[in-house]
Amino acid sequence: MSAPVIETRQFIAGYERDLPIVNGIDFTLAKGEFVAIFGPNGAGKSTFVKALAGVVPVFGGEAFLNGEPIGGLKPHAILKRGMAFVPQTENIFTTLSIHENLQLAAAPLVRSAQGPAIRRMLDMFPDLARQSGRLAGSLSGGQRQMLAVARALLLEPSVLVLDEPSAGLSPKLVSDVFSTLREISATGVTILLVEQNVRAALRIVERGVVLVDGRLRFDASAEALSSHPDLGALFLGADHASEGAA
């Protein structure tokens, strides 16, 4: 069997060295998997994926992408090795046009491959294609999320990592985004997703892991998690209550 797409061992990361937020995570993501990370606020979900992507300093442990160590690399180097990360907010350049956002994302490709890659994304997201000359800042919340995903997929990464893609979107848009993600997953792309929207996410992912206090607490199939009796207790307060709405 080939190496897992993502593998971390005793992974430690955060903003201050003496106050790590991610505190020793062992995690594996196999090729083709669709996995969600859940957990209460402050559990370290976002920090974990940001550290994987190179945006947050790594203080200890190891991280591998397709068997290659990536701990401490710069974001652009990690992207080059096959991990595309979509942050929760500010995930597109609002002062650049939609087309320019895609051109920027295509820049690491050889020149002849850039045009076709951009065209492939515009075909996939016709909504964006229709207004590709407009400034990305003029897009609606859902369209921005689509552009962010399109830009991330453009380089055909071996894994797509998203930080709360449903945050701030209306229920209708959340289900649009999720069904898009499911389609992408169906084409064989490995996806790792941080989500607060537990119930909706469990309907599309194959596996879920739960972080609490910077550590991995649960790791089970979506089915097992959905029917787990103590699960609710892990997603504290407001988060739990909001699930009904989603």
């Binding site: 945006v55 652009h76 990360f85 994302a105 820049a107 380089l155």
Partner: peptide, 25 residues
């Protein structure tokens, strides 16, 4: 030019630029 696009991107958001594959340095 691509160089100029990358410069405008870093000017708007350096950390996102890295995630887009721009070598910020």
């Amino acid at each position: 030019t691509p160089t100029g696009r990358a410069m405008r991107a870093v000017s708007e958001n350096p950390s996102l630029s890295g995630l887009f594959g721009v070598d910020v340095d």
